[in-house]
Design a protein around this nucleic acid. Sequence first.
DNA 1: TCTGAATCGGTATTCAAGTAGCGATATAAA
DNA 2: TTTATATCGCTACTTGAATACCGATTCAGA
Lengths: 212, 212
Amino acid sequence: MENPNENPLPLPTIRRYPIFLRAIGEMMDAGEAFISSSVLAERLGLDPVLTRKDLAMAGVPGRPRRGYPAEELRAAINRALGWDSATDAVLVGTGSLGSALLGYAGFKEQNLSIVAAFDANPRLAGSTVHGVKVRPLAEMARLVRRLKVHLAILTVPTAAAQACAETLVEAGVRGILNFSSAQLSVPEGVIVQNVDLAQPLAVLSHAIARHG
Amino acid sequence: MENPNENPLPLPTIRRYPIFLRAIGEMMDAGEAFISSSVLAERLGLDPVLTRKDLAMAGVPGRPRRGYPAEELRAAINRALGWDSATDAVLVGTGSLGSALLGYAGFKEQNLSIVAAFDANPRLAGSTVHGVKVRPLAEMARLVRRLKVHLAILTVPTAAAQACAETLVEAGVRGILNFSSAQLSVPEGVIVQNVDLAQPLAVLSHAIARHG
DNA sequence: TCTGAATCGGTATTCAAGTAGCGATATAAA
DNA sequence: TTTATATCGCTACTTGAATACCGATTCAGA
């Protein structure tokens, strides 16, 4: 099912794309019709050559002394990330972190809409968080399947994460954004991205500790 | 001010250390006195060789057919990360994300205590979130300086981030965990770690989009 | 029209990290 | 006591990404 036309992008490039998108949007708002790699790099504190290579991978030709056409560039990056068409997602676990994510405005820019939220606590069922109705966990499999949702945001306690993940995958989910500290084991073809607060904290405190 | 005795750890190794620490803790709770790289790797779904190299960097010698002494290994990793002694931090911005972080239990395991929280909204001042008193932003510089806090968690709106960062650095902060999407510009020697939700999401949706 | 400067786009090099292979060693079992 | 084996720890090797370099292009201004 893989598409051989699209050449694979380096992972670091993919990670930088959202940052580029924000800056491009701001520059377009400021009236710019062309984005040069040097200006963009300057703005973001990145190497201009690295930036140019990243932009080149989007496939939009740039023009000497002008840069890349802003609108086309943005569209191409969005397409590369799969952010060009609306994507549905569900959120599982409406604790404090889950609730905070339901209010996260950034998802809209990424064409991501959270169509349902679930929680194991039946007393939360029926309540509404940031405009999304919370449903009991028992309804999850059926609803995910019916709505054909392929992306899930997992903000449940670590102990519950693996079981939730299995239910989600069974129901058709292909990608999981995992905020728990469980190491999820999923079948081939399902992609898990862990968001582990301890990792950047480790980098930070290690660097501070070393520098005295 | 750099300590030349400590050899620098690869960044990926540092990021894996918190994951190792959790697993080691669980295995110790289960009564294990020795941790072998193969068992740990199996448990975490990592390459055994890679795991062994990571563990070796902690500087604790392992024994053939046994593995690494659990207690010493954990202590060494904690030391490498600067998590062996208590560290104070402040949190700036008590919106929904900031409040969620104030309730994050993981900080305790990392010997990190949030000693103060600040918010620009004066109406929030005086309230208490997860046991931490919220103070007005105006008190931040003075208090950070007085308490000699070197680490800050920044959960303010993107537009306010740069100004906050400058105040914090001016007051003595050496590391910033930045949850806003601003690209902070800070003086040399100050370390910023960005936590950008859009990045793992980009990796996820890109992969899903490619796989059809 | 001519000249210069900024920018793109490709190639080559360097560097860091992950991977592979293998001998050394201590432990457990025969 | 001997033997088999799991594990460590060292030394290449490979891969992927960042960096450096340089020619090609096109626009702005003289």
